[in-house]
Design a protein around this nucleic acid. Structure first.
Length: 151
DNA sequence: GCCAACGTTGGC
DNA sequence: GCCAACGTTGGC
C-alpha cells in the first residue's frame, strides 16, 4: 500500500464535493500531465491512501484523506468532442489519459495549511514543497505519518 | 493580477 | 534533436 497526494481546486471539485458524492466516491479525472498520468496509470493501486490537497484557493493545504477504490481506466473526457480536454490524438483502443476512483475516508476539521507543512523541518523534502505543477505525486510513509500526526 | 517555474509545441 | 515561443500551474 502506498501514499499519494492529489491536487485539486476546491472551487471546481474539493473535499466537500467528494463528501456529497454518492457513496462519497468520485472519479479523479482530467489529469493532463504525463508525469502525473504515469503515476496514475502505472503505480496507483486499490487501497492506496491519498491526501486531498486544495490549491488555488483561500485555504491552501491538505483537506482530507481518500482511498483508491478503482485502478486506472481511460479518462472518458478525452474521447468527448466538445469537451475542453478532448484529445484528438486519443482513441478508445489507444487512450492517452487515465483516471481512478477514490472514496472519502476523512475530512479534516481544519485544513492542514501549506504554511504549516512548509514550517515542518522534516517535511522539507516533500514533493509538494520541492516541485510545482505536479497534480499526482507520491508521499513517503514517514511524511504521511508526520502529517497525520499534526492534523 | 502578477509572475516564476516548468511543460508543450513546432519550426528548423 | 535543439530551442524559442507559448501555455499552464499555482503561490503570493
Amino acid at each position: 500500500m502506498r501514499y499519494w497526494l492529489f491536487k485539486t481546486e476546491p472551487d471546481v471539485f474539493g473535499v466537500d464535493d467528494l463528501a456529497e458524492a454518492p457513496e462519497q466516491t468520485a472519479r479523479w479525472d482530467e489529469i493532463r500531465n504525463y508525469q502525473a498520468r504515469n503515476f496514475l496509470r502505472d503505480e496507483v493501486r486499490i487501497g492506496d491512501q491519498v491526501f486531498i490537497y486544495h490549491s488555488s484557493c483561500k485555504q491552501l493545504g491538505i483537506a482530507g484523506i481518500a482511498e483508491v477504490v478503482r485502478e486506472a481506466y481511460p479518462d472518458p473526457s478525452q474521447f468527448e468532442p466538445g469537451h475542453a480536454l478532448f484529445d484528438v490524438k486519443a482513441a478508445p483502443d489507444a487512450p492517452r489519459w487515465f483516471c481512478v476512483d477514490i472514496r472519502l475516508r476523512e475530512r479534516f476539521s481544519q485544513v492542514i495549511l501549506l504554511s504549516r507543512l512548509k514550517a515542518q523541518p522534516d517535511l522539507e523534502n516533500m514533493t509538494l514543497l520541492r516541485q510545482g505543477r505536479l497534480s499526482v505525486q507520491p508521499v513517503s510513509a514517514a511524511q504521511w505519518q508526520i502529517i497525520v500526526s499534526i492534523r
